[in-house]
Design a protein around this nucleic acid. Structure first.
Length: 415
RNA sequence: GCGGGUGUAGCUCAGGUGGUUAGAGCGCCAGAUUGUGGAUCUGGAGGCCGUGGGUUCAAGUCCCAUCACUCGCCCCA
């Protein structure tokens, strides 16, 4: 075991992993741009109340998972556990509420103090979108369609299914919550220990319990559909119809609920069975009460966040970077010449790697190991003639090439 | 916070019931080949056996603790 370890739940993104992350981010950013979402970057830490109030004091995120601390000036700050609250804060701070609709895309690290497991970390990365100021279901439909499009572009749409539910408006939700509490309160003795706690804090959560006993009770629990008022039922129907018209497949999951308090109406998750216990790859929904809760005007909002690590685990290996050309100088005069030649070749857009030290064989071996397309040997004899020896690593062919023709020859080699 | 599994070389792993200098494959270094990579052959380096304590004549092996990793629960992306 090495003496130096990364902090629990953090990890180094070595080049291959970093490439996978970058592919996820760039794909998502490009697709979001097609829908008119502009990239935004907010700080990775905020005053603690930015997260504590909207997310809900009694949620696990706030009560035990936040990285919060007092800074040197005595301010209570928190590393962001998610980014919706941060984006809304930025909207309010910058007075953007006048220019709705607002469409934002973001990516970056998030922090939650929890036990790491497969696809779950203390520092993890999310991409996400927020669409603010549009109360109509078209917003929900477009945001979901964007998620689907990203999965398609990443080549993993067939391994992921969209689950869809509605939480109704606040009135519907409150009525249903009351009915649920009544139902489960009469059967507390049959509930699992976890669900007894949920009954106090977040009764809707009992619905997606993994406990078999809870699931038996759930099968006879009140149905949310019966408690939806007309407006809520109509809203959900319009979202569903819109997805149908776009050919976005989904599965209605009446047990799908949200942990965060500010969600209303549409709730959805893109889930997979390929990641162990962490099935959710994209999660989101509508949060019409959030902006007002944070001190702004009444403003609708809908969005989602996706875990980059989880998506990166699902995608195929991204294309390898361009293969370099290795320059192998022989002798001190050639050494100096090689640096200048490397710059000239890079001016032509070629990827150039210098053999830094060792004898010829060693430099050639290193060039081969890094996957070089070809080596250019610079020896005194050739240089005196204004030429170099070009060795094609794929064919093994070798020939002398005039220096002023080198860039063209190398470009012609291709990848 | 709770439960299960695993910690031996850079990586992947062997090391019945305790017994002498702890092994393999891959990788790395060197030579065969001092102006030529890959393939082959030969040689070499590299191990507080996670850490601390205990039992024993003797511990990689048994016991306890601890740390880390990992899978799951809670929760969530």
């Amino acid at each position: 075991m090495p003496a130096l370890q990364p902090a629990r739940g953090t990890q180094d993104l070595l080049p291959e992993a970093a490439r996978r992350h970058r592919r996820v981010i760039e794909t998502a950013r490009d697709m979001a741009a097609l829908y008119g979402f502009a990239e935004i970057a907010t700080p990775i830490f905020e005053f603690t109340e930015v997260f504590a109030r909207p997310i809900g004091e009694h949620t696990d995120i706030v009560s035990k998972e936040m990285y919060n601390f007092t800074d040197r000036g005595g301010e209570e700050v928190t590393l962001r556990p998610e980014n919706t609250a941060g984006v809304v804060r930025a909207v309010l701070s910058n007075g953007l509420t006048q220019s709705t609709p607002l469409k934002f895309f973001y990516s970056g690290p998030m922090f939650r103090y929890e036990r790491p497991q497969k696809g779950r970390f203390r520092q993890f990365h999310q991409i996400g979108v927020e669409l603010l100021g549009v109360p109509q279901p078209q917003a929900d439909i477009e945001v979901i369609a964007l998620g689907q499009r990203i999965l398609v572009a990443l080549g993993i749409a067939d391994r992921v299914t969209l689950e869809l539910n509605t939480l109704g408006d606040p009135a519907s939700r409150a009525a249903y919550r009351e009915a649920l509490v009544g139902y489960f309160s009469a059967r507390v003795s049959e509930l699992s220990e976890d669900s007894r706690r949920r009954l106090e804090r977040n009764p809707l959560r009992i619905l997606d319990s993994k406990d078999p006993g809870d699931q038996r009770l759930n099968s006879e629990a009140p149905d949310f559909a019966a408690y939806l008022n007309d407006a809520s039922r109509d809203f959900f129907a319009r979202v569903s119809d819109g997805l149908d018209r776009l050919g976005v497949a989904y599965r209605r999951n009446p047990r799908l609920v949200r942990g965060l308090d500010y969600y209303t109406h549409t709730a959805f998750e893109f889930v997979t069975t390929d990641l162990g216990a962490q099935g959710t790859v994209i999660g989101g929904g509508r949060y019409d009460g959030l902006v007002e809760l944070m001190g702004g005007p009444a403003m609708a909002g809908v969005g989602w966040a996706a875990g980059i690590e989880r998506l990166a685990l699902l995608i195929a290996e991204p294309p390898a970077p361009a293969r370099p050309i290795a320059l192998v100088p022989i002798g001190e005069a050639a050494e100096a010449r090689a640096l200048a030649l490397a710059e000239q070749l890079r001016d032509q857009g070629l990827v150039v790697d210098l053999g830094y030290s060792g004898n010829i064989a060693r430099r050639m071996r290193r060039a081969d190991r890094i996957g070089a397309r070809a080596a250019v040997l610079l020896g005194d004899d050739e240089l005196a003639r204004g030429a170099a020896t070009l060795r094609d690593f794929d064919s093994g062919d070798q020939s002398e090439v005039a220096l002023d023709a080198l860039a063209a020859r190398l470009t012609a080699l291709g990848r």
